[in-house]
Nucleic acid binder design. Structure first.
Lengths: 199, 199
DNA sequence: CCGTGGTAAGTGAGTAATCACTAACTTCTG
DNA sequence: CAGAAGTTAGTGATTACTCACTTACCACGG
């Protein structure tokens, strides 16, 4: 077709992006390699030159998603080292931004959770989840030491809740109820951490 | 085959049960009508006599799942009308029980969330979700009036969080980390409601 | 008690379409 | 011109779904 010729690394990136979009819209089994090739404007066979199989392509998509999630969390908690309230607000904003401006990535995280008994998916995704949990746990421990967060909060448990918050927002979004995400919900998610009741 | 002859209502129930199991294991697109017929020990054609199409069968499975979820919530909050702590504990136990003893149903809820941009699925599932939210919201409002729950908790927002808690537990379960669900996590989920810090 | 016929329950053998994937080919570009 | 980038035209297997058919059940007349 009128496809421009790309370098192999750029083409790989492009195919991966298109694949993520198609997987997000149709789930793994619902997406076809033909759909992906059409989204990318290339011949179906080219996918196999770059990724070998549909399954490996999906694994690459999961890997990309996980790495973006971890990178996002890391950067947020790095830029607010000792401002828990700002950090938590930024965390929620990060989630919402993911849901609204990077819908494909958001859907992928949800999709991965559903496809989590595929061994290959587990192997790629769970390490990222573990890193995300440990990043959150570390932040909570630091805030506890600084007296920002109640002492009787268990850091690992709180990390689970913060990570899981994303699932709640995603559920609201996919239900078409993200508009209900207001200060009330944010407060309900964040309140248990406050050393003193927030103003 | 050696299939016993059943009445139409019993056969319908049996096929639905098998379909839920197969859908839960393979997601909608991953499950095939052949798999379902084999699970039920019947000819594939019989599925179409009873349900018309794979999609309608899935809708029936979603409907069953939603109705079980709502019924469970309703019964829990009915049996603990003015004991918020007992009710919340029962709620978490209900979720965990769903995850451990009715794995197919648990997986279905997760699966529905992922398939939520299919209009037919939305149409079947969202009303159940709305009912679940309003059941939870009603309970929280009653507890507030009785002084069990802080006044600055927004009932609808809290209902979202309680409903979303299930997603967190499901994520832990599918990650193989349900063993981490201890008092700490339960407390992190429930603490924001307490009028006074729980003992 | 016995057949017996009507009907509901269930099956076998397909259909066209689509799936993931491949081999042999062409075209562009440094 | 060599090799990398990309395509064409298929492969057998599998998909959701259908149709013509058979079997078991049961009310009812004798």
């Amino acid at each position: 077709m009128a496809t421009k010729r790309l370098s192999s690394v750029e083409r790989r990136k492009q195919i991966l992006g298109c694949a993520i979009r198609v997987f997000a819209r149709n789930s793994y089994h619902g997406a076809t390699t033909r759909m992906i090739s059409e989204e990318a404007g290339i011949a179906e066979a080219l996918i196999y030159r770059y990724f070998g199989s549909k399954r490996k392509l999906f694994s690459a998509a999961v890997d990309h998603t996980g790495s973006r999630l971890v990178a996002g969390l890391q950067s947020i908690l790095d830029t607010h080292p000792d401002e828990p309230l700002a950090a938590l607000a930024a965390l929620l904003r990060f989630y919402v931004d993911l849901l609204e401006r990077h819908e494909e990535l958001a859907k992928m995280i949800f999709l991965v959770s559903a496809e989590l008994d595929d061994p290959e998916v587990r192997e790629v995704y769970l390490p990222y989840q573990e890193r995300a949990l440990s990043i959150l746990k570390g932040a909570i421990e630091r805030w506890q030491a600084a007296g920002f967060v109640r002492d009787d909060v268990a850091p690992r448990a709180a990390a689970w809740v913060l990570l899981g918050s994303y699932q709640l927002l995603a559920l609201m979004k996919h239900s078409g109820r993200l508009d209900e995400l207001n200060l009330d919900v944010a407060l309900a998610l964040v309140r248990p951490f406050a050393a003193a009741p927030p103003s």
